[in-house]
Computed example of a mutant assay.
Amino acid sequence: MSSKYKFNNPEGIYFVSFAVIGWIDVFSRQIYRDLFLESLVYCRKEKNLNIHAWVIMSNHVHLIISCKAGFILSDIMRDLKKYTAYKILKEIKESTTESRKEWMLFLFAKAGKENSNHTNYQFWRQDNHPIALDFHSNMFEQRLDYIHNNPVEAGIVEHAADYVYSSAKDYQEGKGLIEIDVLQ
C-alpha cells in the first residue's frame, strides 16, 4: 500500500482536503457549516488538534493542521469526520425546512450501501489526501494561499478575508470565526 497520502510524521504539518460524497453542496447551508466548525473547535480544545488554516466550501473542506506531541493526527481526523457526519446527517434527517432532504439522504444511503465500511449512510469520501508541508518552504505558503483564495477563485467573494468560513481574516485582519494556531 502506498504511503504517499498518509500521516507519516506524527509531528508534521499537513494540508488535507476532504469532500462530501458525490460532491453534494451540503455546506451551502449555514447550519451545516456551523456544525462542522463546532467539531473543529472541539477537536482543537479536547483532542489537541492544531488548526493553522481552514476553509469550508460548498462541498469540501481544506485544512492545514498538526497535533500536539503524543496525539495521532489520523485518529483525530477519523473522529472529526465520523462525528461531523453523524451530526450533519442527524440535522438533515430532523430538518423540517431542508428542501433537499430526501434527495441527499437517498444519495448518502446509496453510498453507504456500496461501502462495506458503513452501515447506513456515507457522508464523507474516504480519503483525506494529506500532504506533508515544510513550514519553512514555499509549499506551505502556496497551500495557505490556495486555501484562502478558494472562495475568491470560486467567485463567492472578491477578497479572501471577506469569506467568513475561512481563516483568511485571521491572517489578514485579525480574528476570524474560530481560534487558529498561527505558525511563526
Rank of each mutant, 00 (worst) to 15 (best):
N128T: 13
Y86Q: 11
A19W: 06
D79H: 11
S95K: 00
S166G: 05
P10L: 09
R125P: 01
L183A: 10
F106E: 14
M77S: 04
S99G: 02
E38Y: 08
Y5L: 15
I56S: 06
Y83V: 12
I76R: 00
N138V: 08
L107D: 04
I31E: 07
D75L: 14
E38K: 15
S17E: 09
I24L: 13
I178A: 02
Y5F: 15
R44A: 02
K45A: 13
N59Y: 08
F123M: 03
L35E: 01
K81N: 06
N8P: 04
D34K: 13
E102Y: 04
I64H: 03
G70R: 03
I92E: 08
N149Y: 11
W23R: 15
K113R: 15
C67W: 01
I13Q: 02
Y32L: 08
A19S: 15
L144A: 09
E173C: 06
I72L: 14
N9S: 12
Y14C: 02
M57Q: 11
F15C: 10
A109P: 03
D75M: 09
V61R: 07
S58K: 12
Q126R: 11
V26L: 15
G176T: 01
P151G: 06
T119L: 11
I147P: 01
Y32R: 09
V182S: 12
R100S: 05
I56L: 15
L49P: 01
L37G: 01
S116A: 13
H129N: 13
L144P: 09
I56M: 13
Y121C: 07
A161M: 10
V164M: 13
F36E: 00
A132W: 07
L63E: 00
N8D: 11
N150C: 09
G176M: 03
I65N: 01
N117R: 13
N115C: 12
V152A: 04
L63N: 04
G12T: 03
L89F: 02
H159M: 14
F15E: 10
L49G: 00
A160M: 15
N9T: 08
I31M: 08
I64N: 03
E38H: 10
V182E: 12
N149Q: 13
L37N: 02
V26T: 14
I64F: 08
A19G: 12
Y14S: 05
I156D: 06
D170L: 06
F140L: 14
L49T: 00
F7T: 11
W23A: 15
I64Y: 07
Y171K: 04
D75K: 15
R78N: 11
I178N: 00
E46I: 03
L37R: 00
W124H: 06
Y171G: 05
L73D: 00
E11H: 13
W54E: 05
A85M: 05
K4N: 12
I92Y: 09
K45P: 06
I76C: 00
N128L: 06
L40A: 00
G174Y: 01
L63Y: 00
D170E: 07
